[in-house]
Amino acid sequence: MRRSFNRPDYIAHTILVLGVLLFAFPVWLVFAGSTQDSDAIMRGDLSLMPHLANLSVYPRVLLHGTMGTEPVWHMLLTSFGMAVAIATGKIFISVLSAYAVVFFRFPFRQTAFWLIFVTLMLPVEVRIIPTYAVMAGFGLINTFTGLWVPLIASATATLLFRQVFTAIPDELVEAARIDGAGPLRFLRDIVLPVSGANIAALFVILFVYGWNQYLWPLLVSTDPALDTIVIGIVKMIGQETQTDWSAVMATAVLALLPPVAVVVLMQRWFVAGLTEGEK
């Protein structure tokens, strides 16, 4: 360790810079491309220097979309609504169910817990067809509710909160009971505040999870008015001929920004939550 402070660790810097470039390069390329002429991109004259005078493509796609898609602001709003609803909804119902399992004794408590726990093993991808049938039965096809409600049932979040709540010292519960606090007040005044860091971390993970959904919205909605930004951008690249490439690239940049911003800004909580929670 002493040695590395004396002279720079060239090998480490080289490898890390290469790693950073491996991830940054495609995004830089897409950003640079978004400021250039679509015909030039089609001809292969893409320059890695962005033409900063051409940033007008951003307000254009935001307000009008491209090639007949919804305006990009609308797709961003749909994605944002879906991500926030999934994150909030999952945290809400998981806190409640974990609280019930940890702080109460009632018949079938273990059964209820196992019923939730087993669903850890059933991601959406393995039950595509039957879930569609159930959704149709509820009239949830092509509705905003259909985009998020079925995704909020979560074994992982319930397990995480169960762990966090179990670690709350018995003395706190005793003290609250002596002070005459009921279970709901104890939840609000003690349990939620002491779990704040876990909730913040989980919110970041779930926001990204919600924002990045692709198969689910593809399945439950054919209505362009419900297109999320991820659905929208894949539709755009699907039309490979006569594509307004700079607009597509601008849309890609806009689609990346919100989840990346959330992860970078909340990096500390998120990293701690991920490595402690999911293991």
């Binding site: 169910s97 059933l122 049932a153 279970p183």
Partner: peptide, 27 residues
């Protein structure tokens, strides 16, 4: 130490259980 009550925990569990039933077990 736990709280007493039979109805409250069931109410707290219900949203998660219903969603799990409809969107996991049924499909």
């Amino acid at each position: 130490t736990v709280f007493n009550g039979r109805l409250l925990p069931v109410v707290l569990l219900l949203p998660q259980l219903l969603l799990t039933l409809f969107f996991f077990y049924w499909p």
